[in-house]
């Protein structure tokens, strides 16, 4: 189908043959993946497969030892993390990573650090409308919020950067099932609003059910790539990640 190939010709993000090392330990082995504008792509894999390493490499916290990362047609390997946020790559890190003693509002406003004050103020209202629970706690230290609220704050903080690509690292981790569902509902609404999302999850069934496409990462290598639905029905995926 040539037309479909043309649509996919210029992905928003493409990771090409990326390897990342921690000292002498290799955590990623020649990872290739692509994310098109508007897509929700899931990455599933076991603990220690290298999922967080991949996200940190995309955000520029870790430098790859080989390969290239192309965002919007340009290699971003030489860009520092702050430049990558400015370009539109925002990450919701694993474990939420609040600025604990600072207020909810300060946390959100810092999310817009690379943008102007007026833009930050306008988007603060938008994000607080999206997460009314945060509005009630606006002046309270982020560290005193419940786990679910902190997850919302972490997502809200990343949205304050007006990302073109939102990276989510294990957003359901450590949340009670109903709060995890709420988080996935939020992600669904982000996708509906047109945000490009790269979702990394251990909860494979929920992530693949949401995703347009998915990748499976095993010991640093991409072993499967397909649509979300096809991966859900894949026997190997079912056996290894869905507990079926």
């Amino acid at each position: 189908m040539p037309q479909k190939a043309a649509e996919r010709a210029v992905p928003l993000l493409s990771v090409r043959g990326v390897s990342t090392h921690y000292g002498r330990i290799q955590a990623l082995r020649e990872v290739d993946l692509e994310i098109a504008e508007g897509e929700l792509v899931a990455l599933v894999g076991a603990n220690g497969a290298g999922k967080t390493t991949l996200l940190r490499t995309i955000s520029g916290i870790l430098a790859p030892s080989a390969g290239d990362i192309v965002f919007d047609g340009h290699s971003i390997l030489r860009a520092q993390p702050d430049r990558r946020v400015e370009m539109g790559i925002a990450q919701v890190p694993e474990g939420r990573q609040m600025f604990g003693p600072m207020s909810v509002e300060d946390n959100l406003v810092l999310g817009a650090f690379t943008r102007t004050k007026t833009e930050a103020e306008a988007d603060l209202a938008v994000v607080l409308d999206k997460f009314p629970q945060l509005r009630d706690k606006q002046r309270e230290p982020a560290g005193t919020l419940s786990g679910g609220q902190q997850q919302m704050l972490a997502i809200g903080r990343a949205l304050m950067a007006r990302p073109r690509l939102l990276l989510l690292d294990e957003p359901s981790m450590g949340l009670a099932p109903n709060l995890a569902d709420e988080t996935f509902a939020t992600i669904r609404s982000l996708k509906a609003a047109g945000t490009t999302v790269f979702l990394v999850e251990q909860n494979a069934s929920a992530a693949l059910a949401l995703a347009d496409r998915g990748y499976v990462l095993e010991t640093g290598r991409i072993v499967l790539a397909d649509t979300g639905r096809a991966l859900l029905e894949n026997e190997k995926v079912q056996a290894a990640y869905l507990g079926l």
Binding site: G60, Q80, P81, E86, Q97, F99, D106, L110, A158
Partner: peptide, 24 residues
Amino acid sequence: KMGKAMLATAYNPLAARLVGINTK
């Protein structure tokens, strides 16, 4: 803003880098 960015870096350097603060 810069003062808050410095505090944020003190509280959580990783998160500070991920919101676009140049921690150097």
